[in-house]
C-alpha cells in the first residue's frame, strides 16, 4: 500500500469530492470505493468566514485522510495563498498543488509548479504536485522537495485515460523510490487498472465517479480494477512476445 510522507494509506485509490449529485451520494461512493484519501478543494472566497465548513464537516466524516488541493489556481501566488488557507482549515501539512497554466486544457504550468513547490516545501508543507509526465519537470519537482509525484493521465475531466503510456512507464523506471500517482484524466476502471499495472502506487480521480449515472457502483468498479491492476503488477506479468507459445505442449509434432 502506498506511503506518502511517512503515512501509510490502506488504499491505492484517492477520490475527489466535487460534482456529486449530493453529499449523501458522495459518502456512499466513498464507502463503496474504499478510498484512503479524499481530496477537497478550497475556494478562496469561502475562507474568510469558513462558510464552506458544513460541507467540509461532511467530508471529514468520511473517515479518510484529507488532501486539500489548490484547484483552480492559475498563479504561484494564488496557489501559495490557497495552500496556507488549506493548512489552517484542515490542520494538515499535505497539499495537492495545482498551478494551472492553460485555461482550456487545465494543463499544469510546469514553471509555476516548481516555484510554488519550492516555496511551500520550505514552509513545511508536504507537497503532492499535479504535473505532466515530463521527466525533467518531475526531476525538478523532486529537487524542490516533493516526495510524491502525480502526473496526469490526460487533462482533468476528459476521461481519455493514459495518453502517454511510454512517458508514464519511464517515470516509473526513473523514480523507483518515489510514490507515483496517476492524477486526472481517467474515465474507466480499465484505465485505472492499466496505471496500476505500470507499477504506479495509486490513482486519483473524481469526475469518472462523481458524474457517472450511479456514482457508488462506479466507485466499486474502480476499487476492483485498482486491486486487480496492483495484483497484476506484483505478480510480475509475462512480457509480450511475437511468437505464439501454445499453453498446451503440442506433443508428437515436429518443431519448426
Amino acid at each position: 500500500m502506498p506511503t506518502f510522507y511517512g503515512t501509510e494509506i490502506a488504499s491505492a485509490l484517492m477520490l475527489g469530492t466535487a460534482q456529486y449529485p449530493s453529499p449523501a451520494i458522495l459518502a456512499d461512493a466513498f464507502r463503496q470505493s474504499n478510498a484512503g484519501i479524499a481530496t477537497v478543494s478550497v475556494r478562496r472566497e469561502a475562507g474568510g468566514e469558513q462558510a464552506g465548513q458544513d460541507f467540509w464537516r461532511l467530508v471529514s466524516d468520511l473517515n479518510v485522510a484529507l488532501l486539500p488541493n489548490t484547484a483552480g489556481c492559475h498563479s504561484v501566488r494564488e496557489a501559495v495563498t490557497t495552500a496556507h488557507m488549506a493548512r489552517e482549515l484542515f490542520n494538515t501539512p499535505w497539499i495537492k498543488l495545482e498551478v494551472i497554466g492553460h485555461a482550456d486544457t487545465l494543463q499544469p504550468d510546469p514553471f509555476g509548479l516548481v516555484e510554488a513547490a519550492r516555496i511551500l516545501t520550505e514552509d513545511g508543507f508536504q507537497v503532492f504536485p499535479y504535473c505532466t509526465e515530463d521527466l525533467v519537470l518531475c526531476d525538478r519537482l523532486v529537487q524542490a522537495g516533493c516526495e510524491v509525484l502525480m502526473p496526469w493521465g490526460a487533462p482533468i475531466g476528459t476521461g481519455l485515460g493514459l495518453n502517454n503510456i511510454y512517458g508514464l512507464r519511464s517515470l516509473r523506471a526513473h523514480f523507483a523510490d518515489i510514490p507515483l500517482v496517476v492524477d486526472a484524466g481517467l474515465g474507466l476502471p480499465s484505465q485505472a487498472a492499466h496505471a496500476m499495472e505500470l507499477g504506479y502506487d495509486a490513482v486519483l480521480l473524481n469526475t469518472a465517479v462523481a458524474q457517472a449515472g450511479d456514482p457508488a457502483t462506479m466507485a466499486r468498479a474502480f476499487a476492483s480494477a485498482i486491486e486487480a491492476g496492483r495484483a497484476a503488477f506484483t505478480a510480475d506479468p509475462m512480457s509480450p512476445r511475437d511468437m505464439a507459445a501454445p499453453s498446451t505442449p503440442v506433443l508428437g509434432k515436429a518443431f519448426l
Partner: peptide, 13 residues
C-alpha cells in the same frame, strides 16, 4: 452551486 453558506457576496468569477 457552491458548497458554502455564504449568503451575501457574489464573486467576479
Amino acid at each position: 452551486q457552491i458548497e458554502s453558506g455564504q449568503r451575501t457576496r457574489a464573486t467576479v468569477r
